[in-house]
Design a binder for these strands. Sequence first.
DNA 1: TCTTGACTTGAAGTCAACTTCAAGTTCTAC
DNA 2: GTAGAACTTGAAGTTGACTTCAAGTCAAGA
Lengths: 153, 153
Amino acid sequence: MADQLTVAEVAARSGFAPSALRFYERRGLIEAGRTSGNQRRYHRDVLRRLAFIAAARHVGLTLDEIRAALDTLPEGRSPTRRDWTRISRHWRARLDAEIDALRQLRDGLDGCIGCGCLSLDRCVISNPDDTVAPRGPGAVFLPRPLHPPVEDL
Amino acid sequence: MADQLTVAEVAARSGFAPSALRFYERRGLIEAGRTSGNQRRYHRDVLRRLAFIAAARHVGLTLDEIRAALDTLPEGRSPTRRDWTRISRHWRARLDAEIDALRQLRDGLDGCIGCGCLSLDRCVISNPDDTVAPRGPGAVFLPRPLHPPVEDL
DNA sequence: TCTTGACTTGAAGTCAACTTCAAGTTCTAC
DNA sequence: GTAGAACTTGAAGTTGACTTCAAGTCAAGA
């Protein structure tokens, strides 16, 4: 009987909107029990799970990746600290990679700004990874707080 | 008569798909002349403009921001090296900010992974900027090449 | 001249991660 | 017992940056 949290409570304590909770449930990231009247009741474990989701989103993982990670948690028992540590261990490499990519871009920029070249095939800035073809439609994502608008220009 | 480049040529040399070129034109980022038969013919200046767009996209600017920047270029003459340098100078601060944000996240992660806490309101990773409410719908963007998929987990 | 490939348009589709809506149901406090 | 807040559902809308489609028009070489 530890699953007595209502949608509103979970929403308030996790910071996710109720609509997001339902969305995550449809996507298989969280689950919920039901009352006799078909309303959701959450186990408190869901809060830690949501904290993990929030963290992973900040690191830049997609919901699919997050679900894959969550799927490796043990069934039948509450995850331990060690479980959470295990599945978030890979984040560091990811962040390191992103930081490095950004740093390369910035350092290239320092050289490039001076020359004003912006050559499509030579400039590090306009062509960072020496490819020409971008692929696929749709959007590419960055964790929310890392992409603040810059005031001037 | 320097505007003799066809869509296909500009697409090939810029790496942008023809559909993207038309899209950018509608959004006011580039322009093109027309033949008597209404087909587009580009001035070669458009290539450098597209290089700027590509670079700005990599840095993470939105098309609206890019258009705003391009709008400050002088009319009537081809932009000089100095012009390009001027409008891309602000990128460095932007990149620095993003790198810093990522680094903070990573450093917080080092402490957090060990403790496995992932507390919704205390953990740096699950709540990097001490906010609770995310705002608005839609997507948040990171420059394409900076967000590679990670293989395991 | 004819064919074929390149081009034109507006409208609609895509992707991720949600939010909003409408229309109805349940829970809880009085 | 009832008001009203909280909940339910599926469907459709939002955002940014494009792509894809259908139905036709243009350009260039043989």
